[in-house]
Design a protein around this nucleic acid. Sequence first.
DNA 1: GTGAATGTTAACAG
DNA 2: CCTGTTAACATTCA
Length: 243
Amino acid sequence: MPEGPSIILLKEAIQSFKGKKIVKAEGYAKIDFSVFSNKKIKEIKTWGKHLLICFDDFFVRVHLLMFGSYRINERKETNPKLSLQFSKGELNFYAGEVKLSKEDPDEIYDWSADIMNDHWDAKKAIKKLEEQSSQFICDSLLDQQIFSGVGNIIKSEALFRAKLHPKNKVGKIPPKAMRLLLRETKKYSFDFLEWKREGKLKKHWLAYSKKVCPRCDLPIHKEITGKAKRRSFFCNNCQVLFK
DNA sequence: GTGAATGTTAACAG
DNA sequence: CCTGTTAACATTCA
Protein backbone atom coordinates (compact mmCIF):
# COMPACT_ATOMS: atom_id res chain seq x y z
CA MET A 1 0.00 0.00 0.00
CA PRO A 2 2.37 2.57 -1.26
CA GLU A 3 2.95 6.20 -1.94
CA GLY A 4 5.87 7.43 -4.03
CA PRO A 5 8.59 6.99 -1.37
CA SER A 6 7.61 3.35 -0.82
CA ILE A 7 8.07 2.71 -4.52
CA ILE A 8 11.58 4.19 -4.32
CA LEU A 9 12.32 1.65 -1.58
CA LEU A 10 10.92 -1.09 -3.80
CA LYS A 11 13.14 0.03 -6.65
CA GLU A 12 16.19 0.04 -4.39
CA ALA A 13 15.32 -3.40 -3.08
CA ILE A 14 15.25 -4.96 -6.55
CA GLN A 15 18.24 -3.18 -8.08
CA SER A 16 20.22 -6.41 -7.95
CA PHE A 17 18.01 -7.79 -10.73
CA LYS A 18 19.14 -5.10 -13.14
CA GLY A 19 21.00 -6.75 -16.02
CA LYS A 20 19.66 -10.16 -15.05
CA LYS A 21 17.92 -12.46 -17.48
CA ILE A 22 14.39 -13.68 -16.88
CA VAL A 23 14.13 -17.43 -17.27
CA LYS A 24 10.45 -17.72 -16.45
CA ALA A 25 7.51 -15.34 -16.04
CA GLU A 26 4.03 -16.24 -14.87
CA GLY A 27 1.05 -14.99 -12.92
CA TYR A 28 -2.61 -14.17 -13.30
CA ALA A 29 -2.17 -10.74 -14.87
CA LYS A 30 -3.90 -10.55 -18.23
CA ILE A 31 -0.72 -10.14 -20.24
CA ASP A 32 1.41 -12.21 -22.58
CA PHE A 33 4.09 -13.65 -20.30
CA SER A 34 6.13 -15.01 -23.21
CA VAL A 35 7.51 -11.53 -23.93
CA PHE A 36 9.78 -11.82 -20.90
CA SER A 37 11.50 -15.06 -21.79
CA ASN A 38 15.27 -14.72 -21.91
CA LYS A 39 15.05 -10.94 -21.75
CA LYS A 40 17.48 -8.95 -19.64
CA ILE A 41 16.26 -6.15 -17.40
CA LYS A 42 17.79 -3.02 -18.83
CA GLU A 43 16.67 -0.54 -16.22
CA ILE A 44 14.31 -0.10 -13.29
CA LYS A 45 12.59 3.27 -13.06
CA THR A 46 9.81 4.81 -11.06
CA TRP A 47 7.29 7.51 -11.80
CA GLY A 48 5.32 8.38 -8.71
CA LYS A 49 3.57 5.21 -7.66
CA HIS A 50 4.49 3.40 -10.88
CA LEU A 51 7.33 0.88 -10.95
CA LEU A 52 8.75 0.43 -14.45
CA ILE A 53 10.83 -2.61 -15.26
CA CYS A 54 12.37 -1.78 -18.61
CA PHE A 55 13.67 -4.04 -21.36
CA ASP A 56 15.16 -3.24 -24.75
CA ASP A 57 11.90 -2.70 -26.57
CA PHE A 58 9.18 -2.72 -23.90
CA PHE A 59 8.55 -2.22 -20.22
CA VAL A 60 6.22 -3.63 -17.63
CA ARG A 61 4.45 -1.25 -15.29
CA VAL A 62 3.55 -2.44 -11.82
CA HIS A 63 1.16 -0.34 -9.76
CA LEU A 64 0.43 -1.71 -6.30
CA LEU A 65 -2.79 0.32 -5.96
CA MET A 66 -4.27 0.02 -2.47
CA PHE A 67 -3.59 -3.63 -1.67
CA GLY A 68 -0.56 -4.61 -3.68
CA SER A 69 2.52 -6.21 -2.17
CA TYR A 70 5.72 -7.91 -3.27
CA ARG A 71 8.22 -10.49 -2.17
CA ILE A 72 11.85 -10.74 -3.18
CA ASN A 73 13.28 -14.26 -3.35
CA GLU A 74 10.31 -15.61 -1.45
CA ARG A 75 6.64 -16.36 -2.07
CA LYS A 76 3.35 -15.71 -0.36
CA GLU A 77 0.61 -18.28 -0.06
CA THR A 78 -1.51 -16.59 -2.71
CA ASN A 79 -0.92 -16.62 -6.44
CA PRO A 80 1.21 -13.79 -7.75
CA LYS A 81 -0.15 -11.33 -10.28
CA LEU A 82 3.33 -11.29 -11.78
CA SER A 83 6.26 -13.53 -10.99
CA LEU A 84 9.64 -12.90 -12.63
CA GLN A 85 12.09 -15.71 -12.11
CA PHE A 86 15.80 -15.52 -12.71
CA SER A 87 18.44 -18.21 -12.76
CA LYS A 88 19.14 -17.06 -9.23
CA GLY A 89 16.27 -15.44 -7.35
CA GLU A 90 12.77 -14.26 -8.13
CA LEU A 91 10.52 -11.27 -7.86
CA ASN A 92 6.83 -11.67 -7.03
CA PHE A 93 4.05 -9.09 -7.13
CA TYR A 94 0.65 -9.64 -5.58
CA ALA A 95 -2.58 -7.84 -6.42
CA GLY A 96 -2.20 -4.37 -7.87
CA GLU A 97 -2.10 -3.76 -11.57
CA VAL A 98 0.36 -4.99 -14.19
CA LYS A 99 0.57 -3.62 -17.71
CA LEU A 100 2.91 -4.03 -20.65
CA SER A 101 3.90 -1.14 -22.86
CA LYS A 102 6.01 -0.88 -25.98
CA GLU A 103 6.36 2.85 -25.67
CA ASP A 104 9.45 4.70 -24.57
CA PRO A 105 8.98 5.75 -20.92
CA ASP A 106 10.65 9.09 -21.68
CA GLU A 107 7.91 9.76 -24.22
CA ILE A 108 4.94 9.03 -21.99
CA TYR A 109 6.10 10.01 -18.51
CA ASP A 110 6.62 13.60 -17.42
CA TRP A 111 9.51 13.21 -14.99
CA SER A 112 9.12 16.81 -13.87
CA ALA A 113 5.75 15.87 -12.33
CA ASP A 114 7.21 13.15 -10.08
CA ILE A 115 7.71 14.49 -6.57
CA MET A 116 10.42 11.90 -5.90
CA ASN A 117 12.34 12.70 -9.09
CA ASP A 118 15.31 15.09 -9.21
CA HIS A 119 13.59 16.73 -12.16
CA TRP A 120 10.43 17.60 -10.22
CA ASP A 121 9.68 21.20 -11.12
CA ALA A 122 7.92 23.46 -8.62
CA LYS A 123 7.42 26.19 -11.20
CA LYS A 124 5.57 23.80 -13.50
CA ALA A 125 3.50 22.64 -10.54
CA ILE A 126 2.51 26.24 -9.78
CA LYS A 127 1.53 26.73 -13.39
CA LYS A 128 -0.68 23.65 -13.37
CA LEU A 129 -2.20 24.73 -10.05
CA GLU A 130 -3.13 28.08 -11.54
CA GLU A 131 -5.25 26.22 -14.06
CA GLN A 132 -7.32 24.61 -11.31
CA SER A 133 -7.80 27.56 -8.98
CA SER A 134 -11.39 26.69 -8.10
CA GLN A 135 -10.45 23.22 -6.90
CA PHE A 136 -9.71 22.24 -3.31
CA ILE A 137 -6.00 21.98 -2.49
CA CYS A 138 -6.61 18.51 -1.01
CA ASP A 139 -7.63 17.35 -4.49
CA SER A 140 -4.76 19.09 -6.27
CA LEU A 141 -2.20 17.42 -4.02
CA LEU A 142 -3.53 14.04 -5.10
CA ASP A 143 -3.38 15.05 -8.78
CA GLN A 144 -0.77 12.70 -10.19
CA GLN A 145 -0.09 15.00 -13.11
CA ILE A 146 1.18 17.64 -10.67
CA PHE A 147 2.34 15.65 -7.64
CA SER A 148 2.95 12.17 -8.97
CA GLY A 149 3.68 9.94 -6.01
CA VAL A 150 1.78 11.97 -3.43
CA GLY A 151 -0.87 9.93 -1.66
CA ASN A 152 -3.23 10.42 1.22
CA ILE A 153 -0.60 10.37 3.95
CA ILE A 154 1.70 12.89 2.29
CA LYS A 155 -1.35 15.04 1.51
CA SER A 156 -2.42 15.42 5.14
CA GLU A 157 1.10 15.71 6.53
CA ALA A 158 2.24 18.31 3.98
CA LEU A 159 -0.85 20.46 4.58
CA PHE A 160 -0.35 20.27 8.33
CA ARG A 161 3.33 21.15 8.08
CA ALA A 162 2.54 24.09 5.77
CA LYS A 163 -0.27 25.18 8.14
CA LEU A 164 -2.83 25.10 5.34
CA HIS A 165 -6.38 23.77 5.65
CA PRO A 166 -7.22 21.00 3.16
CA LYS A 167 -10.39 22.79 2.10
CA ASN A 168 -8.59 25.87 0.81
CA LYS A 169 -9.46 26.70 -2.76
CA VAL A 170 -6.23 26.64 -4.73
CA GLY A 171 -6.82 30.16 -6.04
CA LYS A 172 -7.28 31.58 -2.53
CA ILE A 173 -3.87 30.48 -1.30
CA PRO A 174 -1.35 33.35 -1.40
CA PRO A 175 1.79 32.65 -3.48
CA LYS A 176 4.07 32.59 -0.47
CA ALA A 177 1.92 30.04 1.34
CA MET A 178 1.69 27.98 -1.82
CA ARG A 179 5.45 27.93 -2.25
CA LEU A 180 5.79 26.82 1.36
CA LEU A 181 3.30 24.01 0.73
CA LEU A 182 5.30 22.80 -2.27
CA ARG A 183 8.50 22.84 -0.22
CA GLU A 184 6.87 20.96 2.63
CA THR A 185 5.34 18.42 0.27
CA LYS A 186 8.69 17.62 -1.27
CA LYS A 187 10.48 17.67 2.07
CA TYR A 188 7.94 15.41 3.78
CA SER A 189 8.05 12.99 0.85
CA PHE A 190 11.79 12.54 1.35
CA ASP A 191 11.42 12.41 5.14
CA PHE A 192 8.78 9.73 4.51
CA LEU A 193 11.36 7.82 2.48
CA GLU A 194 13.96 7.85 5.24
CA TRP A 195 11.51 7.25 8.08
CA LYS A 196 9.93 4.38 6.18
CA ARG A 197 13.37 2.95 5.51
CA GLU A 198 14.04 3.00 9.25
CA GLY A 199 10.59 1.60 10.04
CA LYS A 200 9.66 4.80 11.88
CA LEU A 201 7.12 6.30 9.51
CA LYS A 202 4.14 6.30 11.87
CA LYS A 203 6.16 7.73 14.73
CA HIS A 204 6.58 10.97 12.81
CA TRP A 205 2.96 11.52 11.83
CA LEU A 206 1.75 14.89 13.08
CA ALA A 207 -1.80 14.84 11.68
CA TYR A 208 -2.45 11.63 9.77
CA SER A 209 -4.44 9.20 11.93
CA LYS A 210 -3.89 11.48 14.95
CA LYS A 211 -6.54 12.51 17.47
CA VAL A 212 -4.87 15.55 19.01
CA CYS A 213 -2.94 18.37 17.38
CA PRO A 214 0.71 18.23 18.48
CA ARG A 215 0.94 22.01 18.20
CA CYS A 216 -2.08 23.21 20.16
CA ASP A 217 -3.61 20.12 21.80
CA LEU A 218 -7.00 20.77 20.20
CA PRO A 219 -8.67 17.88 18.33
CA ILE A 220 -7.45 16.75 14.91
CA HIS A 221 -10.47 16.46 12.64
CA LYS A 222 -10.98 13.56 10.31
CA GLU A 223 -13.18 14.35 7.34
CA ILE A 224 -13.84 13.11 3.83
CA THR A 225 -12.85 16.04 1.65
CA GLY A 226 -12.88 17.11 -1.97
CA LYS A 227 -14.01 15.46 -5.14
CA ALA A 228 -11.52 12.67 -4.49
CA LYS A 229 -13.57 11.83 -1.37
CA ARG A 230 -10.49 10.81 0.55
CA ARG A 231 -10.11 11.45 4.23
CA SER A 232 -8.10 14.40 5.45
CA PHE A 233 -6.70 14.91 8.94
CA PHE A 234 -6.35 18.51 10.00
CA CYS A 235 -6.39 21.02 12.85
CA ASN A 236 -8.92 23.82 12.46
CA ASN A 237 -6.87 25.97 14.81
CA CYS A 238 -3.41 25.63 13.28
CA GLN A 239 -4.24 25.27 9.59
CA VAL A 240 -5.35 28.46 7.87
CA LEU A 241 -8.41 28.59 5.66
CA PHE A 242 -8.19 31.61 3.35
CA LYS A 243 -11.51 33.23 2.44
C1' DG B 1 -17.00 -10.78 11.72
C1' DT B 2 -17.04 -5.96 9.99
C1' DG B 3 -15.38 -2.07 8.08
C1' DA B 4 -12.00 0.81 6.54
C1' DA B 5 -7.68 1.77 4.39
C1' DT B 6 -1.14 4.61 1.84
C1' DG B 7 -5.35 3.86 -5.22
C1' DT B 8 -7.13 3.97 -9.80
C1' DT B 9 -10.17 3.19 -13.52
C1' DA B 10 -14.14 1.40 -16.00
C1' DA B 11 -18.93 1.28 -16.17
C1' DC B 12 -23.02 3.45 -15.49
C1' DA B 13 -26.69 7.10 -14.52
C1' DG B 14 -28.59 11.39 -15.34
C1' DC C 1 -21.23 15.00 -24.33
C1' DC C 2 -20.14 16.14 -19.66
C1' DT C 3 -20.27 15.17 -14.65
C1' DG C 4 -20.75 12.62 -10.84
C1' DT C 5 -21.48 8.12 -8.56
C1' DT C 6 -20.62 3.26 -7.99
C1' DA C 7 -18.27 -0.97 -8.57
C1' DA C 8 -14.40 -3.54 -9.07
C1' DC C 9 -9.99 -5.06 -7.94
C1' DA C 10 -8.08 -8.18 -3.62
C1' DT C 11 -5.33 -7.48 1.17
C1' DT C 12 -4.48 -6.38 5.84
C1' DC C 13 -5.47 -4.71 10.18
C1' DA C 14 -7.99 -2.74 14.06
